[in-house]
Write a protein that binds this DNA or RNA. Sequence first.
RNA 1: GCCCUGAUGGCGGAAUUGGUAGACGCGCUGGACUCAAAAUCCAGUGCCCUUUAAAGGCGUGCCGGUUCGACCCCGGCUUGGGGCACCA
Length: 909
Amino acid sequence: MEYDFKSIEQKWQSWWAENKTFRAVEDPSRKKFYVLDMFPYPSGAGLHVGHPLGYIASDIFSRYKRLKGFNVLHPMGYDSFGLPAEQYAIQTGQHPEVTTNRNIARYRSQLDRIGFSYDWDREVRTCDPGYYKWTQWAFLEMFDSWYDPEKDQARPIGELIARLETTGYADITAERWNAATPKEQSDILMRWRIAYQGETAVNWCPQLGTVLANDEVKDGLSVRGGFPVEQKKMTQWQLRVSAYAERLLSGLDRLDWTDSLKEMQRNWIGKSEGTELTFRCGEQQLPVVVFTTRVDTIYGVTFMVLAPESALVDELTVPSQRAAVDEYLAYVKKKTERERIAETKTATGVFTGSYGINPVTGDKIPIWISEYVLAGYGTGAIMAVPAHDSRDYVFAKKFGLPIVPIIEGCDVSEESFDAKEGKMCNSGFLDGMEVKQAIEAAKDYVEAKGLGRRKTNYRLRDAIFSRQRYWGEPFPIYFKDGIPTPLPLDKLPLTLPEISEFKPAENGEPPLARAKDWTYEGWPLEKSTMPGFAGSSAYYLRYMDPRNDSALVSPEADAYWRDVDLYIGGTEHATGHLIYSRFWNKFLYDRGYVCTDEPFRKLINQGMIQGRSSFVYRVVGTNTFVSAGLKDGYETTEIHVDISLVYNDRLDLEGFRAWRPEFADADFILENGEYICGWAVEKMSKSMFNVVNPDDICDTYGADTLRLYEMFLGPLEQSKPWDTKGIDGVHRFLKRFWRFFYDGDRCLLSDEAPTREELKALHKLIGKEQEDIEAFSFNTTVSAFMIAANELSALKCNKRAILEPMVILLSPFAPHISEELWHRLGHEGSVADAAFPEYVESYTLEDSCTYAVSFNGKTRFTVELPKSLDKDGVEAAVRAMEQTGKYVGAQTIVKVIVVPGKIVNIVLK
RNA sequence: GCCCUGAUGGCGGAAUUGGUAGACGCGCUGGACUCAAAAUCCAGUGCCCUUUAAAGGCGUGCCGGUUCGACCCCGGCUUGGGGCACCA
C-alpha cells in the first residue's frame, strides 16, 4: 500500500489519546525534563501556520528527550482571560466564556491534528475558577508580604508590623504607628506591601476604558487595539516589581537565554549608577534632591529642571510666575502620551522664578519646569548641564540659558558634547582629570563633603495590576470601613459574577459595578479585575500539579519537576510575561512555596513566520493583467491575490476569474504561456490574502510533512516567510521513506545483516541528529534524514537492522508515519517509548586516503594515511616519514593542518 | 541616538566554529518510464570566458588588516530585521 498519511495520522492520534501515551507521572527514580510552550491566547481567528512553529520544535525536543530516557513533562493550556473576548462580548452581548470556549475547542482540534505529545490531563485554563483560585491566592500572599531590604527577600508583613510596633521602621516611629487609626495603619503598610494599592501616574486608555501596564503600551498606543493612551493619576493595585529589580537583573547571568533577550530585559530594568545631590532651592532653602550619572559635570550646571508633576513645582513657583506656570501645567496635562513622544525634539517649559544653589560651586541657578523631566524616574528633578547633555542643550538654546563647557577642546556651538571622554576644565578640583576618573573623584568628593550620596536607579516600574474590565480574575479584596481587606483563604476562588452587559457601568465604574450584590459580608468587593499577565505568571507551576485543590503546587511535585528546562516562545514577551513570571516566581521562592529562584532555565525564541503575499498587476484603466516579468512595460496597479490561487508563483487563471466578480472577464498578458505573480514578505494576515491554515496543509500533505517542513524552512530562531513551494521536497522524502518498507503491498523488509556502508549511513545520521537536536538545529537534522535516505537508496538497503533504528530516529519529527511503521515492524507499544539508537563512531571511519603534504603552503609530496587522522596523528606520521627519508628537514614543525582527504599543510619555523 | 541581530547561487538555507564554500531542498534543463499526463527514477545546475571540452579567471554586502590559509578573527563603512528611547 502507498503512504496513506490521512488514515495513518487519524489512527495514531486516537490511539495516543486512548492509551494516554503522553501522560506524565512523577517518578523520582527517573530524571525529569520539563519542556514548555508559551500557552496561546485562543483568538477567534484560529491558528495559522506560524503559530505551531515553536510547538513543533518543543514537541520534537520532548519526544527526543523521552527516547533518551527522560521522564518528560510537556503540557499545554490556554491563556484564556483577555481583551478580545470582552470586546466581542460588548459588541454582541455574547458572554466571553462562550466565545472563549468555542475558540479553545477550535484551537484544540487544530493542535490535535499536528500530533503533539502533550499530556492533556494537565491542561490549564486561566479563566477556570479552579485555576484562578491560585492566581488570587498568590495575590493575597503578595498583599501579605513586604520586601525586607536587609534580608533581600519578601517576608510576611507580620514581621514589619512587629517592628513598627516596637522600634518603628524607616520614617514611622513606634509612637506614630501605635497611635494610628486602622485606616492610617493600612495606608502605612501599603508603602511596603508587595501587592499594594497606591496613587500613581498610569497609562489610561479611554477607548478601552482601562489602565494598562508599561509593556502593554507602545509608542503611546495600546498594544491591543492601537488606541491612544494618556497619563493620569489614579489609585490602582500595583505589584512591587521594582523591589526585585536587582535580582531580576543579576539572575539573568545564570540563565541560558539568548543575548538579545537578556539585553532587552536589561534595558527594561535600566540600572543606572549615579549620585543623588541636594540643592538648596528658593527663598525657603528647600532641599531638592536630583539624580545624576555625571556628577563630574557639576561645574557645568547652569539651571535646574522639575517635572511638571513634581510636588516641588507648587512650592518653588514664585507669585509673579504663578500664572505662566499654571498655563504650562494645563498645557502638559491635556497632551496625550503620543503627542508627548512626537514632540520630543522641541523643548517646552516655564521658569518658576526660584533659584537653587549649586552645592559644590555655590552658584545661583534658575529653576525651570519642563515635561522632558519625568516624575516617575529618579527624583523628578534634575541638574541641567547643557554643554554635555543633548536634552539640556536643546532646552538651554530655546530659552537662552548659559552653556558652559567643562571638557577641554570640545565644540558646543552646534550641539552638546555627550561623550564620556576628554580632559576636564573649568572644574575646580577636577581640572586635568580624564572624564572617567573625574566621575569617581566627584562621587567621592560629594560623599565626603556630605553633599550627596551614591545611588542606583532602575527604570523598571511597579506593575499596575488593576484593569477596569470584566473578563479577568476578580480581586479577593473587600473594603471594610474603607480599608482593603483580604478575603479569607477558604473563600477562594472568588468567582466572576454574572452580569448582563460587559461595558463599563454608567457612572464610569468597571463592569463589575453592574453585578448585583458584589459584596462580602455586606462590604463592597473590589471592582477591578487582574490583568492578562496575572494568569500567565505561574502557569508553568500549576502544570506540575494541575488538579491540586489545597496548594498551587504540592511540595513533592515541585521538588520533582522544579523548573522549566526548556521554554520556547516568541520574543514579544521579553518585557512583559518573562519579567512578571520571573518576579512572581522569585516571590514564591522567597516565601518558600517553590524550590527554585528562576523559572525558565533555557529559553529559545522561535522566529516569526511571515506571510508571502502574491500580487497581480492590472494595467491601469483596463481589466488586463500583465505577468510580473513584463510589468515594467506598462503602467500597472499592484493587487493582492489570494495565495490559494497561486502555485509556485504561477496564477491559476480560471481560479482568479472565479475569485471575484470584477475579475470574471479578466484578460492576461502571459510570459511563456504562464502568468507569473509578484510577491513580497508581509505579516500573515487576512487582509493580505496570505494566511495559510495548518489544517489545509494537513489535508494536502499530512501533519508529518507539515512538521518536517516547518523545521526544514530554516533556523528556528530566525524569522522567515512561509512559502509552500518546497514542501513537496519533504513530502517526497516521507513517501520515499515509506517505499523502503513497501513496494505497493509487497513488504520489502529483509533480515540480512547490514553492510559496513549501510551501518555508516545509519550512524552518521544518529550522530548528526543527536548533535543537531541538542543544538536546536532542526533544519539540518531534516537534511540529514534526506542524505541518509539518498545513501541507503543508492545502496538499495531494505534491511530491518538499518530501517528499524531509522524509524525511531524519525519519530520526533514525523511521529505518525513512524508509529505506523513501528507497529508494522511488530512492536506493541508506542515508538515514543523506544530507546534512541546508540551511536557507534567507528562506522563513520574511512579506511585511508591520499593527502597532499605541503610546507608553508607549497606542496611537496603526497602520502597515503588513515582518513580519520587528526592533527596529532599527522604530525606523528610526518615525524615517522622523517625517519624513512621521504622527508628530510631540519626545521621545527609549528603546526599541522589537516583537511580530511585533501591537504596537509605543515607550518615550519 | 543607543543596544542587539543578520547579509552566502534564481530561491530557502549548509559549512565539523580558522581548513575542499554552496550540503539538503526548491526551481530550472535534459533523459528514462508512459498513447498521454500524474507519480517515480537518473543526470546536470554559483558566475564569467570558451562552439564543445580541457584549462583558467571571479566568487560569502563594501574597503582594508592579521594568517600558509578568512563566510568565520580585527578595524572602518553600507544595508535589512528587532528592541529601547526626553531614564538625567
